[in-house]
Design a protein around this nucleic acid. Structure first.
Lengths: 224, 224
DNA sequence: CGCGGGGTTGAGCGCCATCAATTGGAGTGG
DNA sequence: CCACTCCAATTGATGGCGCTCAACCCCGCG
């Protein structure tokens, strides 16, 4: 998942299209905190998240970390580069994944419907990453956090009364490493939104969006 | 082009593989400053840069700009999202482009060799963008500029005496919008490298890398 | 020679990182 | 049920990197 307002989240379509075929393998599970794969691993299958959440990360030698993306149900993860994984993939919660043999996807020898869905997923991935560039390169801390919460609400929010509620499966540090900020800044910014009554918190991981319009305005216009 | 040290730049392979087939259309030209395509345009063909350079950009409503990538000879540009272009593409110099019908690439009905090359190009694009995330999100201004110059030298540098020389086809503002900085910061950082004799300048657009090792060290380790 | 646009350099400040202390909440054992 | 532990999250204080605003330089061009 990338922070993209116009995300129609079509990977779900991939999952729905293909679960009826015989091309997929048996679902796998990973417990919270476990690796699904690591950078450098040979890629023989790629995955569609069925339930739970994962994070894709890259590390610098000195310990700095960048979270490339979060994977939520419907997302495809594990696109290879030169036949190898290019990020680590860790489970944020207990997670269920649907594996697909990569070789058949790559060279088109398998199910053509599956193959086309794979190509479409890769193209959507590119477009979503392009949008994420704008956020990393050109948005302020408040804009980043607001964009993140807005996207999460659209993608994973559940109606509660008149509002939408989000259950964040990742830590503040994860959010920070995704947005190119520090945990302190993320925490401060979320506190600010709470004080302004844009959101409400029940514990650190449950967010209720009280004023989606205000959140949207902050996500796009604010520069401070 | 993204700033990736380990970039083996295999898109050249695509170009070489496919120029002998009959699948490609007649090359097109665009003069410096002209648009090759615009965000929102319907995608019926995608392009491989033959000569010259282009920039791929996205804009925010308030005028902030992010350059998604530069396209140099061998690079494939124009990956669509939902059938439409997702960035603007402008010529930085007079540029020659080799167009390919996208429909045949997408659904695999055309040349299978071409199709596989297209899928590989998309996967490389994803991997390169992942690396670029780390730079946008986690590197300091000096690291960014040093990484940029290093990559440009590897990609486009020509041996001059014992050194490698780069001809930058983009302005300082373009570099800034690519790295998520301002023109002033880019200019100051380049001046700093010149003062430290890591590089030399002949005019604003010709750079000679005097100490590649120092440049590499700054690109990866420095945090100030 | 005047003009204009890109590039460079300077001064000052603000956003966000850094360092540090405190709070809170989940899990554990008595 | 409470005390204790541990780590995530919050909050505070301070400083610095990079942005902002502004002046100046350089150079191509009419």
């Amino acid at each position: 998942m990338y922070v993209t307002i116009s995300n129609e989240h079509k990977d779900q379509a991939f999952y729905e299209q293909t679960t009826e075929t015989i091309s997929h393998l048996r679902p796998i599970r990973a417990a919270c905190g476990k690796h699904v794969f690591r950078e450098g691993d040979k890629v023989d299958r790629i995955y569609v998240v069925v339930s739970g959440a994962v994070r894709l990360t890259r590390l610098l030698e000195d310990g700095r970390r960048q979270i490339i993306a979060f994977g939520f149900p419907g997302d495809m993860v594990g696109f290879p580069s030169h036949g190898r994984h290019h990020t680590d993939c860790e489970a944020l919660t207990t997670v269920q994944l649907e594996p697909y043999r990569f070789s058949s996807l790559e060279n088109g020898t398998g199910d053509p419907v599956l193959h086309k869905a794979f190509v479409q997923a890769a193209l959507r991935e590119i477009a979503a990453m392009q949008d994420h560039f704008v956020m990393l390169g050109r948005k302020s801390a408040t804009e980043k956090v607001a964009s993140f919460l807005e996207t999460m609400a659209q993608r994973l929010g559940e109606p509660v009364g008149n509002y939408r509620q989000i259950s964040l499966s990742m830590s503040r540090a994860d959010i920070a490493d995704f947005l190119g900020l520090t945990t302190e800044t993320v925490s401060r910014t979320i506190s600010l939104f709470r004080k302004r009554q844009v959101i409400a918190l029940y514990g650190a991981h449950t967010v209720v969006v009280l004023r989606p319009d205000a959140l949207h305005a902050i996500a796009n216009r604010d520069r401070g």
